[in-house]
Design a protein around this nucleic acid. Sequence first.
DNA 1: CTGAAAGCGCTTACAG
DNA 2: CTGAAAGCGCTTACAG
Lengths: 331, 331
Amino acid sequence: MPASLKQIARECGVSISTASRALNGHPGVNPATRERVLAAAGRAGYRPNNAARALRSRSSGTIGVVLPDMLNNFYAACTAVLQEQFEQHGYGMVLAVTRNDPAREREALRRLASAQVEGLVLVPTSRRWEFPDARVPVVEMNRHSSRAGIDVVQSEEREGSREIIDHLLGLGHERIAVIVGEPQFSTTAERVDGARAALEAAGLRLAPELLLAGRHTRAWGAEAFRTAWSLEPRPTAVFTASSELALGALHAAQQLGAAVPRDVSLAAFGDPDWFDVCRPPLTCFEQPLQEVGMITAQLLLSRLSGDQPDHRASRVRVAGRLVIRDSVAPT
Amino acid sequence: MPASLKQIARECGVSISTASRALNGHPGVNPATRERVLAAAGRAGYRPNNAARALRSRSSGTIGVVLPDMLNNFYAACTAVLQEQFEQHGYGMVLAVTRNDPAREREALRRLASAQVEGLVLVPTSRRWEFPDARVPVVEMNRHSSRAGIDVVQSEEREGSREIIDHLLGLGHERIAVIVGEPQFSTTAERVDGARAALEAAGLRLAPELLLAGRHTRAWGAEAFRTAWSLEPRPTAVFTASSELALGALHAAQQLGAAVPRDVSLAAFGDPDWFDVCRPPLTCFEQPLQEVGMITAQLLLSRLSGDQPDHRASRVRVAGRLVIRDSVAPT
DNA sequence: CTGAAAGCGCTTACAG
DNA sequence: CTGAAAGCGCTTACAG
């Protein structure tokens, strides 16, 4: 049974008001009294009850984070940064996962509202979400919904995609398969856009049969690669819009005996740790995960501290960079 | 401003007691009244205040999870399973990360105590941790401390290590470098033990120069591999005790121009997604991540539900399996 | 510098 | 079936 404020106060012969003030470092407490209270609390292993404190002070000291999936390398990295930043500023983090299911998202937002989170980082899975408490600042991370007036922090999706395709075009590829995830996500739309723009700038177009949309899974990456490989004529290059898709595509290529990059070039969006030890090391667009997490945290924290004179919503796009390895060859 | 119980009650012309009972599905509420309350709550987007509920009912509905690092594939996977299981049983999860720092661990445990968690999953980083509230059931996951009477769920560390070494021995390797992480972790000790036991069973021994202990990072994996490679005579095989270490070792091998498995064989503990697309695909001992997470959750949940007639601590070791790929060749 | 008191939003015996 | 009341453990004006 953990000690309560009351017990500490009694032990020191002071009121609970005084004990509370001493523990919370309020000014205007006799230093000797403060010492006594601190000592007693230390001895008893006193821990304030968060629920009571939150209830009374009307602030939970907590920020909610809603994301699709903890296993995804990108989200895991961002979340690690968020958690560290929030902790440094005295906030706890409460996590909810949606698996890209709008119903789960709805439920997650409810739960976080019940937890009285003071701020929210959201990787939206539906185009129109609702948060019960309109006073809570929200930042959309990576993906964005169609809601107006919400801060968004993402990487340069369109530009990244365009750089990859430009790189392929520069090496003579013209028939390029584009493998992407869920079409309803803003990231997918933007990556496809970027690819399309690059092709059109070169006087080419993205043939419908070469655009393969499915889900951000290894399985779909593999299936889509096989589909692309069965096309007539075959594409000379494949662009996968995430590392999971690349994993599947690479595996499928190895199974089909398609040598990368001799038979087909492969380039991906994202750059997990293992891209440089795979067979072959993959050329890719490195997403600025750390920065996205950091900027998201800073933006939310500045909204929370209220010293954000500018009340307009921000839209931050963080630059990434092309990393050239061995998976792309000239035609 | 989210609606409170009081407002809902007033709107329906009932007392807050009745509104509370209706919302919480207590028996003995007039169905018509219940309907009215539910409807009003729905309209108002009512969400109960967790803090108030936790304070009054003395149960937070929350389980704490303390782990070293969210980026680690093993912990991310376990945590995903834990979160899903806890959610299914009506518990929220609150996460704390220690970065293998005992001081951070101490602080994390305090924070979770303040949050009144009802149960705790802990990947311990110190040999003797303390949780302020002795009534809270704790399960140690993956690693274990030296505390008696605590449930532990882990994979078969010793056996996995032994299987790997036996496999190498079977192909004629006798000079095998063993690269491990932090020596103070139980997992490290057990993996080293397993390796040593396998060697001794074959009438060999683990030479001190061949045991390279550092940290579970890519950087240490690379450095240790370079050290091993500079030994005279060179080892013919390298065993890395985690996937991060394997990543570093593989990268170092590629940089040194050491062809795996022609010049040196490589085998690892753990089996992340990408092991089968790297160069070469890695032979390894597959850790049962899902199962470890699942069993941990079930064990803690059964302690919480109190229907655990057996009060003795459990020590569960989940079996893994050897996965043979292309990174090991006969001498 | 300190204490008595109110009250945060709920749940839960208790009485009717 | 319903309501009035107590109280969970704190914080915070308010009075001294």
